[in-house]
Design a binder for these strands. Structure first.
Lengths: 205, 205
DNA sequence: AGGAAGCGGTAACTACAGTCACCACCTAGA
DNA sequence: TCTAGGTGGTGACTGTAGTTACCGCTTCCT
């Protein structure tokens, strides 16, 4: 599969071979919960195809943190495992998703043998940090209409569809608000000519 | 200085020697701005003594992200420099602060020669990620009175003083709110018996 | 055909926090 | 001594978003 090599080609071929030898490739169905808050992690997933949604929860209120797209890794699971900390977040698959699972136990060895992998991991860390920071900015500085619109644009990109097929309830959950609020704000940005709601879904203009 | 070794003792002595040889130790006065949003970074600071405050800003509104305390490093500057990205955040010294500045250019070499440093860096990344996540939780799930109280407790710990000497204006700035709101909420938690405001400062009970 | 479950829309209300205007107080400097 | 600038306190108002309580519509199952 070419997408696989897109990611691994950045690495030493010897390492690539080892990675593939010691890892397992798994495909999860859309909507599968692959990581629960408080769970201990023993693998580092790398998304080959599909999308993983990472979010946090507090007393029924959820908040979408970021998506992990193909060729990206959920490095936080690695760092959490370093200190044997439980996961702080949840993760589910947005669509049918194929991931390469690297066993955490093998990683320190690879890090010593193939220093390249460190740079890759650091870059992944940086990506996650940046995205968390973006989330803070959205949550703290932006009003609901801006957040909703940006969310829809992002969602459209990630899922690669323009009339987006999604319920208000689902949107509300990911933005950490109530369905009625989404209804209200959606009408607002609709009258502003930014989106249209049709039976096929929500279309961004 | 023993605090210096507290941090470096985790490392290979040969690496320690190299680190100290190629780095510079600098002391900043309280309130010095050491990193500006949009600035490009060429050093990775490790705090030896004192505290660095990291925060973000958007159109006059600030938001405290976290503190970097002794023996911690601002690894984000490293990852930012990896991709030659500008800094996304601001950093100032909370008190007179001594830092060890590692030149970014030397780090890839050290990473190859002394793999230990990678683990250390990963742990630092994990710390930052976790703290950003905490910040999100505070901002998104908690009301002002909870945020204010938690802020004061944290501030007291970090600055190691109990009647905390700080103005409402300063608190408002770090919590990203208005002075009047701090005044109001401070009165509230004062009547709840959680804190007392005296001329010496704010005391946590 | 009937009913349950899910969907989106809406009005009325509440609560929280940001804003405005103004207050009294202290103290550092001219 | 007087004043300017900083401090904290307060009441009245506003705006945003969360809550409650409905509505009608569609879809799907029996």
């Amino acid at each position: 599969m070419s997408t696989k090599h897109q990611f691994l080609s950045q690495l030493n071929p010897a390492l690539t071979k080892e990675l593939l030898a010691d890892s397992t490739t798994v495909t999860f169905e859309k909507g599968t919960e692959i990581l629960r808050q408080g769970q201990y992690v023993k693998v580092v997933p790398i998304v080959i195809e599909g999308t993983i949604k990472v979010f946090t929860r507090q007393e029924d209120r959820e908040l979408l943190l970021y998506y992990i797209e193909p060729n990206e890794s959920c490095v936080m699971s690695f760092s959490a495992s370093l200190k044997n900390q439980p996961s702080q977040v949840f993760a589910t698959t947005e669509e049918n998703t194929t991931v390469l699972l690297l066993p955490v136990s093998k990683i320190p060895g690879w890090m010593k043998e193939f220093p390249d992998i460190n740079t890759l991991f650091f870059q992944q860390f940086n990506t996650r940090y940046t995205e968390l920071l973006d989330t803070i900015h959205h949550v703290w500085f932006d009003s609901m209409d801006v957040r909703l619109y940006d969310y829809l644009v992002k969602k459209s990109q990630v899922s690669n569809q323009n009339p987006i097929k999604i319920s208000h309830r689902q949107i509300a959950s990911e933005l950490g608000t109530a369905r009625e609020v989404v209804s209200r704000v959606m009408k607002k940005i609709e009258t502003e000519g930014k989106v249209v709601q049709r039976s096929q879904g929500i279309e961004i203009l």
